[in-house]
Design a protein around this nucleic acid. Structure first.
Lengths: 331, 331
DNA sequence: GTGAAAGCGCTAACAT
DNA sequence: ATGTTAGCGCTTTCAC
């Protein structure tokens, strides 16, 4: 075979369909797009020709003419991070329902990559973008939002024109603190994420809840780390070394929480007796580790769906999804 | 604000760039695509205009003219299944390196959805598709391969013209059986996947390895189930009920393996003493469960990269990636 | 080395 | 209710 791989004959165009159906191009277009009035009989003839030729409209030609495509961009920091796959599935299913395709972007929270994703989507005349932008200033996102439909996930926004779907981190955090307190743990500490802008809802709520409970200002006991198992491990070691009396840890997310459990165990502490841990997210793995992690569940799939639905609804909107404390063994 | 959201002024076109740079459209195109010879000075002028206007080529217009786009389709059965995210990241990174975007498709192993993904990609004149097709006959895939560049993951293909990247399931399975045998387990059973066509490498190798070890024909001890934790749980119960003497289980994947561990524990069996388990894949969660799962590791990220690299290399190719036994506590 | 013309496949606007 | 004209933004072909 030649170096050029053999391809099937060229795809049928709208012109071919028109010829076979014995009508004009425009009539075919009308039949396909349910536009205006067409004689039912004519429509049938067109549809028959479409089926016969196996015709499918060329997405790029259509997009070129209409100046928009049915593409929705999904921007995440890393799809391999177990938090995102369920969100992605929700985004996909909702996009599918709306007849849209999903283009994936991994940014590693890098501002350059985040912009790159937005630029790429602009170049494709995308229907819109949803995603987690941890590295880009709100003002920049706002600029892009003028050119492309954008719904931001999990960020506190000040511009009322920008749309977002977030989770109720404040309530979740308070529930986590209450859980720790209710189980008799009075010396709390927190593992916070060191990456990402506008991600301080959890820390603020933690500090407030602790102050309200008469624990004083615990700022010193909030230690930052990468939002990963290793990051949680390292941060926990730091926390427990600096404050050996800490007997309850609230983690930014489950990955850090899992690291905290491991760190506590390594230090010979009983979990939860000597050191309780509450995470955030409720990852698939969190129920399986030993001991099973108490956490605040985010409806990741629903989050994904809500992002797309908000995107497709043009009105400005600010959605906050409810979260649920899932009590397991670590607290 | 009007119902129509305010948008930034229209994007600059190649014409705008040409005007600003004081050259013809074609010259701009040449400068951007590193085509033919252009006076270095002219190129500079063009590039300056591009920067000044923030110009980015319209992807659809370009694709329309060239009859191809820089889109690569990634077809998986469910991105929320913890096996795929790492593959997806590998695909994304390799695609990114090649200047391509990734469009995601979830099929749930449904033949209709698998075809739908292929059709959609055809309609977008995609650069190619890589993915896991568990529901489509090879002949059908072969037909599509004539129209679109396709690399199939994890399937045994008979048509030598079709390209694939797979993992060494046979060797991995033999290593798993050897591990079980080496630890003194002689009554083996297997949990096989009930979904997917052309996925019997693991079962065949298991049966062969057992026969070679003098264990006889163990076909009756291969029980099928959904390739999930629950599926593994159910299948294990069936297996252990029918063959109480089984003291070693080889699972189709880690999810089923985790289900097996849970089933054994529920039945009051010690793991691995009374019932050892070896999985396949090595998911992030597998090392974290209790007891940690012994498994055969697949280089998921590398698999993803290899799929795209094979796609971009036009020669027919059949790649088989090496796997590694990871000894942990369950066997 | 550069410009002009043509046209990819589709649909909006206008005619009939 | 249907056909015709035009043109989306780009690159290929062919002049110069």
């Amino acid at each position: 075979m030649s170096p050029e791989r053999m391809r099937r004959e060229k795809r049928a165009t709208i012109e071919d369909v028109a010829r076979v159906a014995g009508v004009g191009r425009q009539t075919v277009s009308r039949a396909l797009n349910d536009k205006a009035e067409i004689a039912p009989e004519t429509r049938q003839r067109v549809l028959a020709a479409v089926a016969e030729l196996g015709y499918r409209p060329n997405a790029m030609a259509r997009g070129m003419r209409t100046q928009r495509s049915d593409v929705i961009g999904l921007v995440v920091s890393d799809i391999a991070n177990p938090f995102y796959p369920a969100v992605a599935r929700g985004v996909y299913d909702a996009a599918q329902d709306a007849g849209c395709s999903v283009v994936l972007y991994n940014t590693d929270a890098d501002p350059v990559r985040e912009r790159g994703a937005l630029e790429d989507l602009l170049a494709r005349s995308a229907r819109g973008v949803v995603g987690f932008f941890y590295g880009t200033a709100e003002s920049v996102l706002g600029e892009y939002a003028k050119s492309i439909s954008l719904v931001v996930a999990d960020r506190v926004l000040t511009d009322p024109a920008m749309r977002s779907v977030s989770n109720d981190f404040a309530t979740g955090t308070r529930a986590a603190v209450a859980r720790l307190l209710g189980r008799g743990h009075r010396d709390l500490g927190m593992l916070d994420s060191s990456v990402g802008v506008a991600l301080d809802e959890r820390r603020s709520a933690f500090l407030e809840a602790c102050a309200e409970a008469g624990l004083g200002n615990l700022s010193a006991r909030v230690v930052q780390g990468a939002p990963s198992i290793d990051g949680g491990l390292a941060a926990s070691r730091t926390l427990l070394a600096g404050f050996p009396q800490v007997d309850g840890i609230f983690a930014f997310n489950d990955l850090m929480g899992i690291g905290a459990v491991r760190a506590a165990l390594e230090l010979g502490r009983a979990v939860p007796a000597d050191c309780a841990v509450v995470g955030f997210d409720d990852l698939p793995m969190s129920a399986l580790i030993h001991p099973p992690l108490t956490t605040v569940r985010i409806d990741k799939y629903g989050h994904g769906q809500a992002l797309v639905r908000t995107l497709l609804t043009e009105e400005p909107q600010r959605l906050v999804l409810p979260v649920t404390l899932i009590g397991r063994a670590t607290a």
